[in-house]
Simulated assay, not measured.
Amino acid sequence: MSKTTTSTFVPLNISVLTVSDTRTAANDTSGDMLVERLQSAGHHLVARDIVQDDIYRMRARVSEWIADIATQVVLVTGGTGFSHRDSTPEAIMPLLDKQVEGFGELFRQLSHEEIGTSTIQSRALAGLANGTLIFCLPGSTGACRTGWDQIISEQLDARYRPCNFVGTLQRALEDRLARQEGGDD
């Protein structure tokens, strides 16, 4: 059960990446759902893309977004399973400065209630890279709904207590802006 205080909501700038060899803008239901949820919550969509399940294409796109101060959060959907083409964790892990271990653990716990032991095949993960928070979710719309509704939405809401990531993201943005003004970025 969420705990809230009277803190003010702080809209964040979020980019959404769908990893798929088959999805297009016309049938990307998981990406559509994440965009709808983040905008309904009051956040801003900065960018959206679909890339093939290729380590280097994913890493290039996410690297571009984490290097740009316009993006504070990246939501990645797809490529977290165990098929020979699933490579999102391998693409994203090297970019992370810190991993949020609890995200994958909690996601699998919540998913167990919905899909049973099949949840062990989810390699959902999250972490911080260059002051940008990255969440990697499975490609199914149901999994994205679980991740957003039961974890991510609260962690991107300054009113959620006892803690959330908004303060961390705001401080990271301030640090990056200060470095940029000083010529270090």
Rank of each mutant, 00 (worst) to 15 (best):
M1K: 10
T4V: 13
T4W: 08
S7K: 12
T8P: 07
F9V: 02
L12P: 01
S15N: 04
V16M: 06
V16I: 15
V16T: 09
L17V: 14
V19G: 01
D21M: 07
R23T: 04
T24A: 12
A25I: 12
T29A: 13
T29W: 04
S30Y: 08
G31M: 03
V35C: 15
E36S: 15
E36C: 08
Q39Y: 07
G42H: 04
G42F: 03
H43F: 01
H44E: 14
L45H: 05
I50F: 08
V51G: 03
V51W: 00
Q52C: 09
D53G: 01
D54Y: 04
I55V: 13
A60S: 12
V62I: 11
E64M: 10
W65R: 08
I66C: 02
A67D: 14
A67W: 07
A70F: 05
A70E: 12
A70G: 08
G78Y: 00
G79Q: 01
T80N: 05
F82I: 00
F82K: 04
H84A: 12
R85N: 07
R85P: 04
T88Q: 06
A91V: 02
M93R: 14
L95W: 00
L95M: 02
L96W: 07
Q99S: 14
V100I: 15
F103D: 01
F107I: 04
Q109I: 13
L110R: 05
L110K: 02
L110C: 05
S111G: 06
E113L: 12
I115F: 05
G116P: 06
G116W: 09
S118R: 13
T119Y: 02
Q121T: 14
Q121V: 13
Q121P: 07
Q121R: 15
Q121C: 11
R123W: 07
R123V: 04
L125D: 03
L125W: 03
A126L: 06
N130C: 08
N130P: 04
T132E: 01
T132F: 05
I134D: 03
F135C: 09
P138H: 05
G139E: 00
G139K: 00
G142T: 01
G142W: 04
C144V: 11
R145W: 10
T146W: 04
D149T: 10
I151Y: 02
Q155L: 15
L156W: 01
A158H: 07
Y160L: 07
R161M: 14
R161K: 13
F165E: 00
F165D: 03
V166M: 05
V166F: 03
G167V: 06
G167C: 06
T168Q: 09
Q170A: 07
E174G: 11
L177E: 14
R179A: 15
G182A: 15
G183V: 05
D184A: 14
D185E: 11
D185R: 09
